[in-house]
Design a protein around this nucleic acid. Structure first.
Lengths: 312, 312
DNA sequence: TATAGCCGTTGCCGAAACGGCAGCAACATG
DNA sequence: CATGTTGCTGCCGTTTCGGCAACGGCTATA
């Protein structure tokens, strides 16, 4: 089912690989063929699409415009294919997800497992990244669904849903703070804390609040792995900060205690956004999973906010 | 700038014309070439795209799916072209509008004139249709922007804006009702009325209200031309029903008087919707006009509702 | 400074795709 | 039954495409 001129696909491959020869290897054709198609495209458009650097090609402004168009075409072709396939009863395809680490402990594995239980022919690709990298991967068409901290998102992305979860302190069961219902940041800073490095978005949530406090914090550990921070907290090394989503199993096993943060009487929210390329209609199987994802996150949001009602 | 395989464009032409030979004439190629491209497409997709009737071709289900994809591709290609053109400073293209008759008296001509005053290189195509035909033309990709009564719209269309205007009685200056501020339907029906035929959406707005009244109405005139109804009312033939949008000049010349309808104490609204294909990003020049259209209609809505405040 | 390894591009040539022409059968209309 | 129109199919010249080998430009390394 290849009714689009090869130029389109060649261009797409060159953009992704950043090199004509590399694209040719991926496409299983001679590099000369790729080169000629690109040159022909540039002649048709009337403007160069790539800047030829010594070590590969970079998109020009016009090239980026064409890349957007080509992405729209190829993604819509995917959708068309899945539409035709679903007509004859066969649901198959791959859902590609880019998400931040907090989802990997329980939300995503459970959802994927349950979904594959019902739709065996749908496969998944998931890539864990930082929030801004998630949005970038989505913009570049390298993922279908993105889950990231709800920062300002580029206009070519659409925020399908926005779920807010309470940020809290995470301590071991034996920790002195563990008997409290909620904690303030100041109370936490009296103990050794496990800080997130700036590449994690928790850092940007907490930093402004910490800056307001004038106290000298206890010596702290810094890490960029949520998994590591969680395990450190479980071993009583210190106080970590997370949403309850990121704790998961250790919380159920009662090794960890989650204490909602209380910032001058109001909760500290961590906003989770679900994103999709705006100029795109998702294939049916992707849309189906997306709906489940939104529903599940909404369900968790509801449950957590019921368990820890407003401080005020 | 034709970097899409001919099959795409041929298919699109065949779909629009409903015949291979007609498409070939439009495309300036031999009919055999078109026929072969369609056959090749069907082979690639693995399913017939058209039903061959004796007198032309009709889309199959799969064909309609492909038509949707092809429409997305070609419309997005248009957008890409306009993006590239605007990069080199030249804004040009054609905005195609499908709308109902009430817009043709003042809103649309003024907007188009003012827009062309600023952007000389943008041309316009406008087609006046009934509300449901407007939506259909939009779905088929025969128009960029649709303005119609806000009925339920198909899911492949997006309602960009919804503006409500008061439905009112329209009478000549000398008409006995002309001195009133508002009128009820019952008061109107005491006089000869000019009814809309079912093909106009005013009919569907008024019919349920008329059905509630048990009175025997005066002998009425029925028409399907808003222009005709307006001119009839201006000549004192009877009471017509319209939104103020549809009166325009004759109202400014004080030949006609607009009397908002009062239905058991509440206004009768006529909802005007502005529509666009959902799976599409508009070219910049089209988007620009669309914004002006929405703004202008919003402005009129505001002015009218200020002139005729709530009845209650 | 010389060399090896990439890079994109180009000439050449066989293969594949495309399009035009004329003619076919099928069907509708009168 | 004649006529017109429909889509389809051999045949054939033209265009396009892709593979191979080679060239010049560049970087990194010895």
């Amino acid at each position: 089912m290849r009714f689009h001129s090869p130029a389109i696909q060649y261009f797409h491959a060159v953009r992704r690989t950043g090199s004509i020869r590399a694209a040719a290897r991926v496409l299983n054709v001679a590099s000369s063929a790729v080169s000629r198609q690109i040159l022909k495209l540039e002649q048709e458009v009337g403007s160069p699409l790539f800047e030829r650097n010594a070590r590969g090609l970079t998109l020009t402004t016009v090239g980026e415009m064409l890349a957007r168009h080509v992405m729209n075409v190829l993604q819509d072709l995917d959708r068309f294919r899945s539409d035709v396939a679903s007509l004859s009863g066969t649901w198959h395809g791959t859902v590609s997800i880019a998400c931040i680490e907090s989802l990997t402990e329980s939300v995503l594995p459970e959802l994927i497992a349950s979904h594959r239980g019902r739709a065996r022919r749908v496969s998944f690709t998931t890539e864990v990244k930082g929030s801004s990298d998630v949005l970038e991967a989505l913009s570049r068409g390298e993922a279908d669904i993105g889950i990231a901290m709800a920062l300002r998102h580029p206009p070519d992305l659409r925020q399908v849903a926005l779920k807010r979860f309470r940020l809290g302190a995470v301590v071991a069961r034996e920790h002195p703070l563990a008997r409290r219902k909620t904690v303030t940041l100041a109370q936490c800073l009296a103990f050794p804390v496990i800080h997130a490095l700036p590449e994690l978005s928790i850092y940007h949530l907490l930093q402004p609040l910490i800056a307001q406090l004038s106290e000298t914090p206890e010596p702290a550990i810094q890490a960029n792995s949520i998994d590591l921070m969680r395990e450190l907290a479980a071993r009583g090394v210190g106080v970590a900060f997370q949403t309850q989503l990121g704790i998961g199993r250790l919380s159920r096993d009662s090794q960890l205690v989650f204490l909602p943060l209380d910032n001058a009487g109001s909760p500290v929210w961590s906003d989770l956004g679900i994103y999709v390329r705006a100029e795109r209609t998702l294939p049916a199987y992707t849309e189906s999973f997306l709906q489940e994802l939104v529903r599940e996150l909404g369900e968790r949001e509801r449950r957590e906010n019921a368990a820890y009602p407003q401080v005020s």
